[in-house]
Nucleic acid binder design. Sequence first.
DNA 1: TCCCCGATTAACT
DNA 2: GTTAATCGGGGAG
Length: 189
Amino acid sequence: MSWSDAPVIARALLEDDAPVVAPRLLGLVLVRDGRAGRIVEVEAYTADDPASHSARGRTARSASMFDRAGTLYVYFTYGMHYCANVVTGAVGDGQAVLLRALEPIGGLAAMRRARPDRRDRELCDGPAKLCQSFGLDRSFDGADLCDPNSEIRLVDDGFERPQQIATGTRIGIREGRERPWRWWIPREH
DNA sequence: TCCCCGATTAACT
DNA sequence: GTTAATCGGGGAG
C-alpha cells in the first residue's frame, strides 16, 4: 500500500501512556500536502516528568498537549525552531511523543525547497528539521492527526513492524535522564 | 517587568 | 568538541 492512499491510524492506538505509545509509532507515516515521512525516532514526555513542558501544568504554549490523543502539539524554541509531538493518553493527561526523525518517502521536491542545499538524508533527521521540511509551525498546533480530512495526518501504509528497536536516553534535556524514553529504528547501512 | 534559558541546528576548531 | 543564532515562555521579584 502506498502512503498516499493509506488510512489514518485508529485513535485508540494513541490512548495509552506516552512511553507505551512511542515505540508503537515507529514505522508509521506522517503525511502533509504531498509530503510523507516514516517515523524512525521518537521520545516520550509525561506530566510527572521534569523534562516535559507539561510538568508544571497547562500553559498557553503547552495547552494542546492536554487535549485528546491524536492532537498535534507544535512548540517554538531556541528563537527559531519548531518541534512536533503526537498527544497520547486521556484528555488532561499532558502526555506526548516528540517526533525526532523521519525517513523521507514522498514529496522530496517540496522538502528540498524547504531545506535548500541539504542532502536528502538530512531533510528530516532532527525534530526541527522535519518541521522545516513539512512546513510545520504554530498554526498546526492542535490539528487532529487521526482525522482523514485533516491537513496533516498519521497513516499506516502496512509497513512491516521494525525488526529492531533501540532505546536510550532522551536528547537535550537536563532532568529526567534516568528515564530511557527515546526509541529509534537503527539505520541500515 | 525583568531575566534566564531551552525537547535545536549549523558552522566552526 | 565548542558555540552563535534568536526570541517567547514562564518563574522570580
